[in-house]
Amino acid sequence: MNLICAEKLDKTYRAGDVDVHAVQSVDFVIEPASFVAFVGPSGSGKSTVLNMIGCLDRPTSGTLTVMGTDVSTLDRNASARFRGQNIGFIFQDFNLIPVLTAYENIEYPLIMVQEWPAAARAKRITELLAAVGMSDQAHKRPDQLSGGQKQRVAVARALVANTKLVLADEPTANLDHDSAYRIIGLMKKMRDEFGTTFVFSTHDPKIMREAELTYALEDGRLQLGTGGNHV
């Protein structure tokens, strides 16, 4: 069964008096435990596709099924619930909560989104801190961490609630090359370890080669011949 299935996906929004077709008639499928990249230049629509998969935005037309749920029909609260239960997010700017330590940032979804008991939380966070190589930085706040370390914490936060899907919008854009490769490597490792599907966007040709499946977008349209397997 496909994890994500999009058919004839359209997204049009209004900018002033002009209709902007951000995504036009896009079809794709993503299998469970895959490592997928949406690539393309700025404004090509890759973030819009990720936002729609992540229930942050609704398609104007077409169908989008994520883990068997037609996400285009979810209202604000149902979308939040669905995201909280099923999807992890990694952001370009890390977006960690500045007043919380690395440990507490990872713990956040288990308290504020799901409600895990304390013992289970501690076990899971310790496991993930070790998995992302941040055990010794657990009690530092984001302003005491490097960009790569912050993104490691963000990866752990995205995975902590046993999510089956992690969406990462330009996760390496704010990192140097070494850190970027390490983060992509870490994401792959997490996919292997936890069986989580990673879908990320990038415009970096070197990073896009790390994906096992690549969808290229230009002007909101999927380019012919993409969706190919690199590995």
């Binding site: 609260n77 939040a80 979804p109």
Partner: peptide
């Protein structure tokens, strides 16, 4: 931006 992030990761609006 922080509100956007906690909202994106599924924090319910009521919380």
């Amino acid at each position: 931006r922080e509100i956007g992030a906690i909202s994106a990761i599924g924090t319910p609006p009521s919380r």
